[in-house]
């Protein structure tokens, strides 16, 4: 079986049997969403990188405990969420870095958005401004709404899995998601036209 065609669970079984290539495939498949989830849950930069690495190390350490009773992505993001919560608790005494405050690498979060298009100048500036506004609105969300939003939009997990990860009923998860969407929409109402013009 080609690694790329295999499901997460098939790759995990192969890794549990000692296939390191399968682990590498799993890691590359989930690293992007995982990093985005962690970076937006905590803060981007070295901390998110370290936490991403820590998540996969835990996957390796606990691989034999994974009984395939849930999907691999559910398990992976459960580990990630718990790590994020623990880290945030430890850092509770520290002030959260402002979006406008440069991170360790000196780049504000709002300016770390990938600039994929060839457009430059005003369009790129507007895009960065919308991105920064979205990030700010996201950070302003209550914790439980933010994590549901991230798991849904960033990790692309179905509501049933999000309910397993957060330990909340599925209907509650959906309610949180709806509230999150409505709040974000409210926060971005001023930029509605700008966003439309960008897309």
């Amino acid at each position: 079986m080609v690694v790329g065609d295999a499901s997460d669970e098939q790759l995990m079984r192969r890794f549990q049997e000692g296939d390191r290539v399968a682990f590498a495939a799993l890691m590359r498949r989930h690293l992007g969403p995982l990093y985005q989830f962690i970076a937006r849950h905590t803060s981007p930069g070295p901390l998110a990188e370290d936490l991403s690495q820590e998540v996969f190390l835990k996957v390796v350490e606990r691989a034999r405990d994974f009984k395939h009773e849930s999907r691999f992505s559910t398990w992976l993001f459960t580990i990630a969420r718990n790590l994020c919560i623990d880290t945030l608790r430890k850092q509770a005494h520290r002030a959260h870095a402002s979006l406008d405050e440069p991170d360790a690498e000196g780049v504000p979060l709002g300016e770390q958005v990938r600039d994929e298009g060839p457009q430059a100048g005003e369009r790129a500036a507007q895009s960065r401004e919308v991105g920064a506004r979205i990030e700010a609105a996201l950070r302003a969300l209550p914790e439980e709404q933010r994590e549901v939003f991230l798991l849904r939009e960033v990790a692309n997990l179905p509501f049933q899995e999000i309910a397993q990860i957060t330990g909340a009923p599925e209907n509650t998860v959906k309610s949180r998601m709806r509230y999150a969407l409505e709040r974000l929409q409210e926060a971005l109402r001023d930029f509605e036209e700008v966003a439309r013009s960008l897309r």
Partner: peptide, 11 residues
């Protein structure tokens, strides 16, 4: 809202 709030990708 889904369209508006699409998060920019963090590389």
């Amino acid at each position: 809202a889904r369209v508006q709030i699409e998060l920019p990708s963090l590389p």
